[in-house]
Design a protein around this nucleic acid. Structure first.
Lengths: 217, 217, 217, 217
DNA sequence: GATGAATGAGTTTTCATTCAT
DNA sequence: AATGAATGAAAACTCATTCAT
């Protein structure tokens, strides 16, 4: 009896998880297309093939869903970043690998960057700094410290300029890469028309300039 | 009589302009606070001290207002950029001056960057590439070409690396600066807590790295 | 110009007042029929011949409307009670006149009593004691004191029992009359079937017993 | 085997009864607090610690539950009334005892009176006269007739005024007592503030006046 | 030109109810 | 019998928009 119930509960839980994933996927797609604020719970329900009310059994509002999506993006990006940063090689090479990983995600999953733009605009006015920091901490743990550490090692091994401030440089590289990725993804079309280069080229050039800027002359 | 009418018209026109400006200012404030999609015409009307219906006499919808605000931001930034680019000096120095100008606007008018983030998210899904390009062309005219030209001159005068692709580098510098400015402004608080540096420091460092990356070793 | 505007505003105000009255009348009818909680703003809108949204321009919710209706009932009852209490005659005669007035309203406007029952049930759980007291004070001012005063005079003039506690007796008479009026109105049908007397007869008998109870033997 | 089954059925029935009682208790509490129409099946389920759907296994809707609660109140009041009416003594004394019993229930179980107010408001608009009469008949049987009978006896034994109409007086006393009890319970706070006497005092005074009104001078 | 009134369309939200387990 | 999932229906509420003044 108890076993049967446990079994039943497990099946229910699996179902719930699947539904949740489906809803998040539908929401992400629509958020990217129409913006977070421009997407209604009804839209998401239709996209996911359930009724509006069913969505309420999983999430309370758009912002809830947006944070859940952000969490998934953070988690997926964690691996990428981690792998790149834990390679062997000089500090310079490892930073280069990390930026190259960034470029790969830009190419293969531009949706994430579009979503980040939407999330930023939603997040902008609000005072959810704490929530974001908590999530960053929880998922990335000491990741920013990791980049800082690599830069420090790069200075030691002579591959990076000795007059760099490791923490400041780390903050700069991470934010420039993220910001540039987001902006180029959103403005892909107008940028490519206006400047005559693909955004991948431009992002690559940005990485080159950054690497030039930090490596030992 | 005709004079009187002309006079009346002039006063009327001034009134209309003032109202329009007041509405744009109110809208910009609210767009930054609550997002473009999250701001209703009613909000704007209240903020500007008129009734909802009056707003209709000046604008058709939020997106109209947002584009008008963008136009004003473009125009104000045009001067800044122009001044910086038309200085005397080597190519390197002029690019440096341009980035310094950027940093100044980041410090003195962060609202503009917040608004850009909001605009981007609104603009993202839409197909208004043409409208944006047209506005860029109309206001900045050959400005990107201008940056390209300065880089080309910098290569000639020996202050910039000879293996730069002028157009690509121009695109990179402009987009990185803009993107980084936007991102840092939005995430000021969490970034400063997470990385322990002010966003002005980080933006300054980003400029340094870019300049290091393009100048002759 | 200013005159014209004032004129226009006056007309608008008159229109608003008429609409408000119409909505209150519609609401009262429905509240009596279906209960306050059982009546939606939509029902009221339909009954009053406007759209749901228009109702929102006048009231925020049912409870708002209910209080407004109560206020009107208080005001209309104020006159009745006042007239009865300000007659000449002995204390006993004036109390009798007051109760007779009550009976008249029971006969001519049973809706008011039905509404009071509905209002009571809505009011019951809530903590709006202050609001009710404020309204009672504002409209009736010293009316309960008035009844008390009459009883006191009745004792003096010898028409009422000398061992009455004026304040307590006043409270009793007012509440018994109101309560009995409400209950009989609601349960008219079942009471008349069960007891074989009309509710007017029963209410009249109640008044008789009260009067018997207070008058000098 | 059969015995075992019988035993099981008995346990099961006990469980069902307990559940039913728990649901009724939860519902009564909520009905009093938030009104019958303002209470959802979900509220009741939560209060009783079961799921919404479980409630369906016992009742069909709120109104069903409300009638069931009314039935229980009727049954509990039947005893009280019965005991009081079957005392020895003059008609006057027995009526007095009955009213005293009423006062006791007012003091010890004010919830019942609150519920009656809620029920009345729900019942008001509906045409369930028949249902109410049927229930009254079924539970109280000839109770009103009982009061009538006592009054008749009181007239005979000289303790009550000889010019009373027994049926009418019975109806009056029962309804006044019930109505006043309900009203005072609901408006306890505002009445006590407004009149400066406790509702028990006021109810007691009402009984006194009634008794004065019917007894032989 | 500015405004109050009114509305239609659309969104959020709640609830009772059914179904499968 | 009890429950979680899902839903249809309806209510609450918001907003952009039109019209008459």
């Amino acid at each position: 009896m108890t076993e049967k119930q446990t079994e039943a509960k497990k099946i229910y839980q699996q179902h719930r998880d699947r539904q949740r994933m489906a809803l998040l996927a539908a929401a992400k797609k629509l958020f990217i297309e129409k913006g977070i604020q421009g997407t209604t719970l009804g839209d998401i329900a239709v996209e996911a093939g359930v009724t509006r009310v069913t969505v309420y059994q999983y999430f309370t509002n758009q912002s809830d869903i947006a944070w859940a999506i952000l969490e998934r993006i953070f988690e997926s990006s964690k691996e990428v970043r981690h792998n790149a940063l834990q390679l062997d090689g000089t500090g310079y090479e490892r930073i280069a690998a990390c930026l190259a990983g960034f470029l790969q995600s830009l190419i293969h999953d531009p949706g994430n960057f579009c979503f980040l733009a939407q999330f930023d605009s939603m997040y902008a006015g609000k005072q959810d700094v704490a929530r974001l920091l908590e999530m960053t901490q929880r998922i990335f743990g000491g990741a920013p410290a990791l980049v800082t550490e690599i830069i420090r090692k790069g200075i030691e091994d002579g591959s990076l300029r000795s007059n760099l401030n490791p923490a400041l440089t780390a903050a700069t590289i991470v934010n420039v890469a993220l910001a540039t990725g987001v902006r180029l993804t959103i403005h892909r079309k107008s940028v490519e028309i206006e400047y005559g280069h693909t955004i991948e080229q431009i992002f690559g050039e940005a990485c080159q300039l950054l690497l030039q800027g930090i490596r030992t002359p």
